[in-house]
Write a protein that binds this DNA or RNA. Structure first.
Lengths: 227, 227
DNA sequence: AAATACTGTAACAATTGTGTAACACGGGTA
DNA sequence: TACCCGTGTTACACAATTGTTACAGTATTT
């Protein structure tokens, strides 16, 4: 899944650097130069995590963090503070503003991405790895195992994700575009017809004897998983 | 249950901070300003976990960690190193002295408590020093001995930890990242591909005649230990 | 029925992931 | 010092997965 990252930083070169580093990690970067701009963005854009500079031209980073954490709507957005070297001592005192982690400049790309991922992991503890079964199909996310009529079935990563998606989203038609968004991930550029091919592969894999019973084609609309 | 925490740190403000943060988490804080003081305390007080500053006036943190880890009485006390930013590179090596994790200053309270709990969870499962056996593999954490089909097998420290982790976490896929977190320790910056190499080494070590039966690759997801 | 639009399918190409060996490096030790 | 050991990194080969395309087939419209 793509991570949407709001970077609040007034110095343009640092923003550039962050953008390069983080987009390379397949994250979506939303930029804000000032605290007010950041607060505006938060009103409209979904954000998974904030990188917040300590020193900003208008509202200080710590003030923004406080406001976010006291806004019940936003309080669950994790915040990583960027602090310059030497400001450290103040920062230790400021820890109570609710930031989830700190990174001091200069930082290595590896460290930054590691911390981002660590924070997201800490905040977002494992969600759905519960076994799902439906008719003769059983799928266990933990072990990545799929059985059809108790026969082990080998699926490629995408087929696995696709089946998982269908099992958790039954009885609703999904267009090729929606499937691309949900299974492939947003902003990947693949032909819609590619979906057909993977549907075909998945159908083949979960069919009992040449006949798949569950994935139905809705001509002109997309596909639906139903019994 | 109350956790008894020994904090070894010479700077008073940081000790204060730690005390506030950690006692808020319902932990009992025992303080030591110097390495010698810490070693004295360890002789008499029961301690569940140590927070050890890297730089101390007398004995260095790494030296203390080593002594503890080589003292059979104390070696099971987990140690978290506190390192100042910039000393990092050397510190990464510090994990090899036996520390279970390290945290760089400045750190957020959340991060610190999360790490403490993680380490305790990782170390504590009382079965931690119970012998584990599975099929033809036997592993004794106490003596660090591993046998495969009753043949002694020599494993490096990391391979040992990796095997131990797999034996205690079977039938679930772990990504390279998760394995790094759980086996190498959080926030060590190591390439993910390094995991592959160690998997390879471990596979080789526990294979009976060229064939490893248990560590399976789940393409695109990670590795799983299962029969 | 013909034309059109949409989907199924196979074959191929491109991309990506993994296994593996070789090497580099640092710490400890003889 | 030189050597050994454990670890991390990298490059390359190979294998698996995925994307694209063309064509065949089927439904829908005119």
């Amino acid at each position: 899944m793509q991570i949407r990252l709001l970077v609040v930083e007034d110095e343009q070169p640092i923003r550039e650097m962050l953008k390069m580093v983080l987009s390379y990690q397949n994250m979506i970067i939303i930029e804000a130069e000032t605290g007010n701009a950041a607060l505006e963005i938060l009103k409209t854009e979904p954000v998974d995590l904030m990188l917040l500079d300590w020193m900003l031209p208008d509202i200080s980073g710590i003030e923004i963090a406080k406001r976010i954490k006291s806004n019940s709507n936003l309080s669950k957005i994790p915040v990583i503070m960027l602090t310059a070297k030497g400001e450290e001592d103040d920062k230790i005192r400021g820890l109570e503003c609710g930031a989830d982690d700190y990174v001091t400049k200069p930082f290595s790309p590896k460290e930054l991405t590691a911390r981002i991922k660590a924070v997201l992991r800490r905040v977002n503890p494992s969600k759905d790895d519960k076994e799902i079964s439906f008719e003769n199909i059983r799928l266990d996310p933990k072990s990545h195992a799929v059985t059809v009529s108790d026969q082990n079935v080998k699926l490629g990563p995408l087929e696995f994700k696709l089946l998982h998606f269908f099992l958790t989203h039954q009885n609703k038609v999904y267009s090729r575009e929606q499937l691309l968004d949900n299974v492939w991930g947003t902003n990947v550029f693949v032909e819609e017809r590619t979906v057909d091919v993977h549907i075909r592969r998945l159908r083949k894999a979960i069919s009992v004897n040449g006949a798949d019973q569950f994935i139905k084609t809705i001509r002109g609309a997309g596909y639906i998983f139903a019994s």
